[in-house]
Simulated assay, not measured.
Amino acid sequence: MILRRYLTSQVATTTALVLGFLVVMLLGGRLIRYFGIAAEGGLNVGVLFSLIGYNLPYFLELILPLSFFISLMLVFGRLYSDHEMAVINASGISRSQLGRLLIPLGLLLAIAEGWVSFVAKPWGMYRASNIWQEQSMAQVFDLIRPKQFISSGNYHLYVGEIGQRRESLGDVIIVQMAKNQADNRSLTDKSAKKDTLIFAKSATQTLLDNGQIQLNLYQGRRYEIDPASRQYSQVGFDSYRMTLTAPKADESKQLRIEAVSTPALIEVIRGTLDRNRNEAMAELGYRASMPWLMVLALMMALPLSYTRPRQGRWLKLIPAIFIYVASVLVVISLKDSITKGKLPVGSYAVAMVLLTAFALYLNYHERWVARIRLNRKKPDGN
């Protein structure tokens, strides 16, 4: 019991320290990049740390297993270098038994890794994409120049005059292309095929909390034009309100696959949502494989941390990290191949079985080789 508490506290503390170091290093690079974008006027400084926070689960998904593996290597390497492992083995506790003492911690971290992969990462990337959308729309209005057209998606905006502080616009022309109106409607709907042309004497703009930019148009006319028949309809208005962003009902088609929630991925695989099914299966299999990396970390660290007397605790650290990172890269590479349809989604299970077999070989090959040599030395008939 005392040994279990000691090992668990040492591994947990070291994991936290290594994780903190890797998080600071990786997010520090990302923060510098965001500061550069903000310095160029492409990002509001007020959302920098929000973006960093929302991107944190994306980094944790990969660096949490690596941090656990490195901490195991450091803790067991110190036991070997300080000859504490020899004392533990002499007391009747084998290396495998030490690994079993860390199973509760490994399972806890595997559950945390599963939560990050299935819940936290999609949520964080979804929120980050919303912030980027808001910032991109804000940039559109920052780019408004008098008597020039600017474009945002399928919208084209012309402004004749700009008031002070950009609170009011004058002589506004808005061209809304047909395919933007066809969202969530059938292509056979004739009204969905019409372009829209809006003239307004003045307008005011408002940036909503959900990322949509709202225009309040005054004293103008609205035309609906059918490009095929060249027929049009028109209506005058004293005030007219519209938004310049696409509706969010079809967001699953626009988001990166990493930002799609796990229930939505399941719906895509079932065919309920219109999206690349192979891409959804690849992402779901990838998320399911990540918790297993915690188990592999525990299985691989035990034999790879073994050092002979006077070899030093750092001798095998770098080669062991390369071996573990190579295992992780196998899982990552499968995602691209499954997305392109080159491999079935069952390749994840095959890879996990092969990596587990490799970890078992690392743990027991010395014992197997010793038994084979012992059997060869036995005389015939015994």
Rank of each mutant, 00 (worst) to 15 (best):
R5T: 05
Q176W: 01
Y80W: 09
F358P: 07
I37N: 10
A112C: 13
G346T: 15
N375W: 15
Y6W: 13
V295C: 11
A110R: 06
H83C: 06
V11C: 02
L265W: 02
M25A: 15
R222W: 08
Q311G: 04
M137F: 12
N382H: 12
P319M: 08
A182V: 06
M73D: 01
P263M: 06
L102A: 01
V369I: 11
V369W: 15
G36K: 04
M281P: 02
L169G: 08
D250Q: 13
V87D: 08
P379C: 12
Q176T: 04
G381E: 10
E134K: 09
M73E: 05
R221S: 11
R277Q: 10
A178R: 04
Q231H: 13
N363R: 15
W115D: 04
S186V: 08
L215F: 11
R221P: 02
A182S: 14
E258A: 13
V260Q: 03
R185P: 00
Y306M: 10
E251G: 01
K147L: 09
G170Q: 07
E134A: 13
W123I: 02
V268W: 03
W292A: 08
R277G: 05
I88G: 01
R308H: 12
A200D: 00
D183V: 15
S151P: 13
M1P: 11
P291C: 08
M137D: 09
L296W: 06
T339I: 05
L26I: 14
K179G: 06
T188C: 00
G46K: 10
R287Y: 08
R166P: 00
M299C: 09
I213V: 14
A370H: 09
R376I: 13
S168F: 15
R287G: 03
L217P: 03
R241F: 08
A297W: 01
S50Y: 07
V11R: 03
D380I: 15
H83G: 03
I332D: 12
L22H: 00
I257A: 12
D195L: 14
D195N: 13
R78V: 06
H83N: 13
I323T: 12
V11N: 02
I32T: 11
A128H: 05
L255S: 05
Y364K: 15
N375M: 14
I174G: 01
N382S: 12
